[in-house]
C-alpha cells in the first residue's frame, strides 16, 4: 500500500491529434472523426481488420490503448479503469434510428452490441489479451478521486500488476481520449493532482 505508484506513459487523442507522453505522433488536420481515426489506424500499420467493425467510441479507445500498450510485455494482468460522460450514447442513437419507425425496422446485432459503454474496454482486452480487472464509470467530468482510489486499490490488493486508466469520451464529433498507465516505476507520481492535470488539460 505504501510504495509509491507512478504514471509511466500517457496518450491523448483530441482535435485530430494523437500524442504519447506529450509528443505528437499523428496529426490529421480538420478531418471528421471517422476519417481521422481511420487515417490514424492506417498510419499505425496494424493488421487488425476487426477495427473496422467497431463503433466510434471503441475505435477511439482502441487506438489510444494501442499506442500505449504496443511495446508492453506481459499484458495479461493490466487492469482497465475507464470513464466517460456519454456512455455509449453515440451508438445508442444509431440503434434507436433503426427501431424508431415501425415501418422501417432494422435493428442490427452488430450495432446493438456497442450500446454498452464497457464494450470499448472489451475490445482493448481482446486485442491485448488482458484477462484482467475492468470497470467502466460514467460521470459528467473526469472523477479523479474515484479513479485514483480505484487504480490504487487494484495495485495495492495485487488484483492487477499495472492499471490502464482514463477518459474516453465520444458523442458525434466531440471526442477526447486520455489514457495513462499506472505502475510501480516511472517518473511522474500517481497523484490525484497529476491525473487531473493530464486528463483535464
Amino acid at each position: 500500500m505504501d510504495s509509491p505508484l507512478y504514471i509511466s506513459h500517457y496518450c491523448k487523442i483530441e482535435k485530430g491529434l494523437i500524442s504519447v507522453d506529450g509528443n505528437v505522433i499523428f496529426h490529421a488536420g480538420e478531418a471528421q472523426f471517422s476519417d481521422f481515426i481511420k487515417q490514424a489506424f492506417k498510419y499505425q500499420q496494424l493488421d487488425y481488420p476487426k477495427f473496422y467493425k467497431m463503433d466510434n467510441l471503441s475505435k477511439l479507445a482502441f487506438l489510444s490503448a494501442e499506442v500505449l500498450l504496443r511495446d508492453e510485455e506481459d499484458k495479461e494482468d493490466i487492469a482497465l479503469v475507464l470513464a466517460n460522460k456519454s456512455g455509449s450514447l453515440d451508438t445508442d442513437v444509431k440503434h434507436q434510428e433503426s427501431i424508431q419507425d415501425a415501418a422501417n425496422f432494422y435493428p442490427s446485432p452488430a450495432v446493438f452490441v456497442y450500446t454498452l459503454a464497457n464494450i470499448c474496454g472489451g475490445e482493448i482486452s481482446i486485442r491485448h489479451g488482458m484477462k484482467s480487472e475492468q470497470v467502466f464509470f460514467v460521470s459528467d467530468a473526469f472523477d479523479a478521486t474515484t479513479i485514483f482510489n480505484y487504480a490504487t486499490y487494484l495495485l495495492a490488493s495485487q488484483k492487477a500488476k499495472k492499471v490502464l486508466c482514463g477518459w474516453v469520451e465520444l458523442f458525434e464529433e466531440n471526442y477526447k481520449a486520455v489514457l495513462y498507465l499506472v505502475e510501480r516505476s516511472g517518473t511522474k507520481l500517481h497523484t490525484i493532482n497529476n491525473i487531473n492535470q493530464l486528463v483535464k488539460n
Binding site: Q134, V138, S139, Y150
Partner: peptide, 22 residues
Amino acid sequence: APIVVSHACVSGLLAVSVAKRL
C-alpha cells in the same frame, strides 16, 4: 457526487465491489 457504474450485465454486482473498494 454520484458514481455511475455501467458495465453491461455485471454492473449491479460490480457496483457492490466498487463500493467495497472505495
